[in-house]
Nucleic acid binder design. Structure first.
Lengths: 241, 241
DNA sequence: GGGCAAAAGATTGTTAACAATCCTGTCAAC
DNA sequence: GTTGACAGGATTGTTAACAATCTTTTGCCC
């Protein structure tokens, strides 16, 4: 009933022999896995396991890990391997501060130039999210919650903004997992709904304000007081494998 | 008299044998070279030349090129090598749109929390820039002009914002080189000066407004009408080495 | 002389073996 | 029983050779 009970590292697609997979795809897969919270912060990403999982050589995997590290989604420790990043309190603040700087402006841009199709995609995202919530599909709900923000970034038509936000939203997923309240792991549907309404009515000021408030709400659910917490750096320091 | 007459690729530091250089440093060097406009858009970055220049193995260089490519400062063409990126018109618009989203908010943050030391560093940057202009030191002036923006990002105390802006400012240098008016390759000193004044007087609204206006001014000096221009993709397409 | 085709050279991409480091389990000493 | 050192195994990091692709040159034909 609860899809939470899965193997921790669940990228095992066991690709058929003849297939080929781009390193871009591998990176995207891991991004998704982190965003869906199927890969927890601090999880070790062993090269050999990833090789088997994706059916590619070690060099390719190493390149992917380097790319992931360059986006702060993975941490590379010298001679010690790659681990899913565990954002510190400082990093958590920085990420949301950056989102607070970017996303309200992105909302403005969407109001100015989003097509009906793009708004429809946002609507669809919202509907799927609500459905996933009702069905109790936790992974899907978490993913769709973040995907709303990414679709919104996509609707700006700005590739650079999209790429930057993809990184920030993914890291946010780690942050919420570490510092968030146990139950509150997704954005509230209502926030997204009212935001979308503002976008539809082409009300830039309201959209910007709602986005800012929405991000503020998320931050307010985080516990960024203590120096560390469960799931944070301590976990991997103490991890006995 | 004109320091513009240099070899196009001027990273030749010819490191002493015993030294060691981090890949992080190599990446930073290339970033700097692009920002100072010592590496023009479309310049081929041959692996073997870089190996000799930095005195490191090929693998290390390849990792650096991958990192640079992940920040859109370098373009990797399959089986054809690495080239300094040549932002398209669309990419140019995207980059400045992103800066327009981020930097005004960054200015606000600086007003709120910058220390006197950081403001002094900005002041120093401004002074150096003016001096470089007077001396006709073009490379230094260009670099310092961009560095003002980076120091400002640094003064937010937000590492994530700093990293994102480092990428955007570096790409901006390429964009201005390609699409900018021939003479106007640096921000105007006065803009930076008045902006700093607003920061000093802790006037967030003015700082934000000035930053927005400043970026708008830069964009208005660009010619983003045509589909391509000198220095753009065409150059490397037609380049006979 | 111009244009096309094939071979030589150079550059990039990949694979595999080697070296270095770290983790783990064992054993001895206190 | 706990602590420390040591050896074995596993994982990561590096090097060098090999394969594939592209570029340039050469030569031939029209």
């Amino acid at each position: 009933m609860d899809p939470m009970t899965e193997t921790p590292e669940d990228d095992s697609d066991a690709f058929a022999a003849g297939e080929e997979i781009t390193e871009t795809e591998i990176v995207a897969r891991i991004f998704e896995a982190v965003m869906e919270r199927r890969l927890a912060a601090g999880t070790k990403l062993s090269e050999s396991e990833l090789c088997k999982a994706f059916g590619v050589g070690r060099m390719r995997i190493r390149r992917c890990l380097l790319l992931l590290a360059s986006h702060d989604v993975v941490e590379l420790r010298s001679n010690r391997g790659a681990y899913v990043a565990s954002p510190s309190v400082k990093q958590a603040r920085d990420v949301f501060e950056a989102r607070l700087a970017i996303e309200p402006a992105a909302a403005r841009l969407v109001v100015e130039r989003a097509t009906e199709d793009q708004l429809a995609a946002l609507q669809a995202c919202l509907a799927e999210e609500a459905e996933a919530h009702q069905r109790g599909n936790r992974h899907a709900a978490i993913r769709l919650s973040g995907e709303f923000h990414l679709r919104l970034a996509e609707a700006t038509g700005n590739e650079t903004l999209l790429r930057l936000l993809k990184e920030l939203v993914t890291r946010s997923s780690l942050i919420v997992a570490i510092y968030g309240a146990p139950g509150l792991e997704t954005c509230r549907d209502h926030d997204h709904a009212s935001l979308l309404a503002a976008l539809r009515s082409r009300d830039a000021d309201t959209a910007e304000r709602l986005m800012r408030a929405h991000l503020g709400d998320i931050i307010s659910t985080l516990d960024l007081s203590g120096p560390a917490r469960i799931g944070s750096d301590l976990v991997q320091v103490l991890a006995k494998r």
